[in-house]
Structure formats: structure tokens, C-alpha cells
Simulated assay, not measured.
Amino acid sequence: MAESTGTDASDSDLPHPHEPHDTSLASRLNWLRAGVLGANDGIVSTAGLVVGVAAASTETSAILTAGVAGLTAGAISMAVGEYVSVSTQRDSEQALLAKERRELAEEPEFELAELTQIYRDKGLSEETARTVALELTAHDAFAAHAEAELRLDPGDLTNPWHAALSSAVSFTLGALLPLLAILLPPVSWRIPVTFVAVLVALAVTGSVSSRLGGSNPRRAVLRVVVGGALAMAVTYGIGQLAGVSGI
């Protein structure tokens, strides 16, 4: 790998020795946030679909068919997209790890000097940095370099199947809310109840995702609520036009 130097490396570019714990926590929070956003997608897309159909027809079977079809298609699409994305990321990570393993076998002294420099750039003295590098190398050279240089844990790479499953589940759970909200009430209350239920759910998901990401909750809630309301209003209008015209 390219040799690190004191002029091109910084604390922001290199992990702290204790960072694996922080990285693990950040990874879990990212997965949780992704799940919340997947549920949000399920809510908005299914709500827009069923509200549009309900505006055009009062037939419960038509609404149910459209809702289930939308839920199924959306969950599969989310799962496939997440699987492809994470598989690509995992392939890249494995390629980097393979390169690092090869460099350790071919140039152990250079890699030791590189690891020492990483800890020098963190503020350790030359002697302490080399001692740390030597001890980590003796314990597990590959893991030490993967962590310090690549910020990867070789034994804990993201599983694309887990990602696909969690994405499909979160989308499905989100999609179930508008589907149930429009099917359970009497015909005259279907659309109003769905609007209220969806906007409340979006406010909750917007608040949760903003807190996980450390952003402003009010702004996040406003964005998702306005976006969801707009999506339902547009599909409702299209449904009304389709129903009136007999399409």
C-alpha cells in the first residue's frame, strides 16, 4: 500500500486505537437508520398506491390487490438493491484485505514501518509508536493493518443476505401500516384515516432517523411529512381523475 507520511495523514483520516468499538456502534446505528428509512419508503410508496386506488374505486379487492402487489414488489426491489449494493461493497473490502495480506507476506518490514507511522501521526513518540506496532504485529499483523489502514474487521464484514433481509422486512413493516389503515375503516373513512395514520407514522420515522443521525428533528419531520402528504395528494388526485373518466 502507499506509504503514509506525516504530511499527508491526519487524525481525521486515521482511526484511533479505540475506534473499533466506535466503528461497531456507528455500524449498528447505520443499520438501524437504514431500517427506519426502509420502513419510511414502505409507508410512503404503499400509501400513495392505495390512496390512489381508493380514490378511483371503493372495491376492497382492488385496493387489497394493489396494496399487496405494491408491498411485494417494493420489498423485493429493496432487497435486491441492498443485496447488490452490499455485495459490491463486500467484494471491494475483500479485495483490499487480500492486497493487504499479500503485502504483509511480501514486504513485512515496509508494512511495520507503515503501521509505526500511522501511530506516529496520532501523536505517539517514535519509540512508543514502534513498540505498539511491534506488539500488534506479533499478536495479529493482518488484523492490526486491516484496522489501522483500512478500518475493517476481517471477521465482521457486512453480509449481503442480512442486508437484503433487513431491507425487505423494514419495507414490509412500513407498507403494512397504510394497507391496514385503508382496509379496516368504513369506506367513507378510508382515505382520511389513512392520511392521518401515515402522517403520524412518518413523523415518528422522521424523528427517529434524525436523532440517530444527529440532525434537526423538526426539519426531518417536516420533510418526510410534507413529502408523504404531497405523494398521497397527487395519487389521490390521479385516482379521482381515473375514477371519473372510467379509466
Results as ranks from 00 to 15, higher is better:
T128K: 12
E127F: 07
V221P: 01
M78T: 04
R151G: 01
S167L: 02
D13Y: 03
L176C: 09
V198P: 03
G174Q: 01
M1D: 11
A242S: 06
S207M: 15
P160V: 10
A175T: 01
L29C: 10
V169T: 04
F195A: 06
H139F: 15
A75C: 01
G38K: 02
T172M: 05
R28P: 10
R101L: 07
L29P: 03
G74P: 03
D8F: 10
E107N: 11
K122Q: 13
L165P: 07
V221G: 04
Q89A: 15
T58R: 13
L64N: 05
L241G: 03
R190E: 00
T128C: 11
R219C: 07
R90G: 06
T46H: 01
A197T: 02
V225R: 06
S170L: 00
L179G: 00
G74W: 09
Q117I: 10
M1S: 10
R102Y: 13
Y119I: 07
R211V: 15
P17F: 00
G48K: 14
E82N: 08
G228M: 04
R151C: 02
T60L: 13
K99E: 15
V84Q: 11
F142P: 00
L176T: 09
N30R: 14
L97I: 03
R120V: 09
V224E: 05
A143N: 10
A69C: 04
A220T: 13
W31P: 08
E103S: 09
A39N: 13
Q94K: 06
L157T: 01
G206S: 03
V193Y: 00
D121S: 15
D11Y: 12
V51K: 05
Q89T: 15
E103C: 08
R211P: 10
D8N: 13
E114R: 13
W189Y: 13
G74E: 03
D121M: 14
A54G: 08
T23N: 12
L179D: 00
R90W: 07
T65D: 07
T72A: 09
S45T: 11
T172G: 06
E127L: 08
